[in-house]
C-alpha cells in the first residue's frame, strides 16, 4: 500500500496532475481511385479512360467550417505527396496524418504543386514531378458511333491568386463533421470519370489531335471538376 502511495505521489510530481481535452493522433492515410466504368456525356460521347493519374498532397484537415486562411492551425495534416492511380480501386498507403483529436469540419489540399509564402511561383513536389510537373495526367478515348477521339492531358493545378499565396488550391467542407479519434483511418477516393463529364468533345474533336491544350475548354472543365466540382470522397473507417 505504501509503495502505491509513493508511486502516486511521484506520478503526481512528474506529470503535475496532467490531463487534457486533446490528445495526439496519428491516422493512416490511404488513397484510391474508382473502378473503370465508361460514362456517357451529355453530348452522347462514351468516354473510356485508359489513364487517370493525379498528384495528391499535402492534405490538411481543419476544425473550422471554412478552410483556407482561417485554417492557420490544422487538426491533422500530411505534408507529403503521392501519385494516385485514380482508375485503381485498391487503396494504396500514402502515409499518416498527424495532429490532435477534434472535430473536422473542412479540408484543403494541393495537387502535388504547392504555393509557398516564400516562393513567387508554385513549387512541384515529388508526385507532380513524376507526372512531368503536372497535377493530373489523363488519357482515354471518346466514342460516338463511328467517331472516336483519342485524348490526353497533362495539367498543372496550383494556387495562382496573389492574395491566397501559401494556401492550398482545393478547399472544401466536410459533408458531416467528423470527430477524429484514435483508430481512425482515412481513405481519399477519386473518381476520374467525374473529371471528364463536362468536356465538350465536339470542340475537342474539331481542335485536332486530341491533345488537350492548357487553355482549352477541356482543360478548364477538368480543372473545375478536380478543384471544386467533384472533390474526392473522404472515407473514414
Amino acid at each position: 500500500m505504501r509503495s502505491r502511495w509513493i508511486a502516486g505521489v511521484l506520478a503526481l510530481a512528474a506529470t503535475g496532475c496532467g490531463e487534457s481535452s486533446q490528445t495526439e493522433l496519428e491516422v493512416p492515410l490511404r488513397v484510391a481511385g474508382s473502378p473503370a466504368q465508361p460514362i456517357e456525356t451529355s453530348g452522347g460521347w462514351t468516354v473510356t479512360l485508359d489513364r487517370a493519374d493525379v498528384a495528391f498532397g499535402p492534405l490538411y484537415l481543419c476544425a473550422g467550417a471554412q478552410a483556407g486562411e482561417l485554417c492557420e492551425t490544422a487538426l491533422l495534416d500530411w505534408t507529403g505527396s503521392v501519385v494516385v492511380d485514380a482508375l485503381g480501386a485498391a487503396p494504396q498507403a500514402a502515409g499518416s496524418l498527424r495532429g490532435t483529436t477534434g472535430t473536422q469540419r473542412s479540408f484543403m489540399y494541393d495537387l502535388g504543386i504547392v504555393s509557398l509564402l516564400t516562393q513567387t511561383d508554385p513549387v512541384p513536389l515529388a508526385a507532380a514531378r513524376r507526372l512531368g510537373g503536372n497535377s493530373v495526367a489523363i488519357a482515354g478515348r471518346a466514342e460516338r458511333g463511328a467517331e472516336r477521339i483519342e485524348f490526353s492531358a497533362g495539367l498543372k493545378i496550383a494556387q495562382a491568386a496573389d492574395t491566397e499565396q501559401g494556401i492550398p488550391v482545393v478547399r472544401g467542407r466536410a459533408r458531416t463533421p467528423e470527430a477524429l479519434a484514435p483508430g481512425d483511418q482515412l481513405t481519399v477516393r477519386f473518381d476520374p470519370y467525374t473529371w471528364v463529364g463536362d468536356i465538350d468533345f465536339d470542340a475537342l474533336s474539331d481542335a485536332g489531335d486530341g491533345r488537350i491544350a492548357d487553355d482549352s475548354q477541356a482543360a478548364r472543365a477538368i480543372r473545375n471538376a478536380v478543384t471544386s466540382g467533384f472533390p474526392p470522397e473522404f472515407e473514414w473507417r
Binding site: G57, P58, Y60, C71, E72, T73, A74, L75, L76, D77, T79, R98, G99, T100, D110, V114, L116, L117, T118, Q119, V123, L125
Partner: peptide, 16 residues
C-alpha cells in the same frame, strides 16, 4: 506548442 514553418522551401505543417 503552436504551428510554425522553419522549412521555407517545403510544404508547411499546420499542426501545432
Amino acid at each position: 506548442n503552436f504551428p510554425s514553418n522553419w522549412s521555407p522551401n517545403r510544404p508547411a505543417s499546420r499542426v501545432p
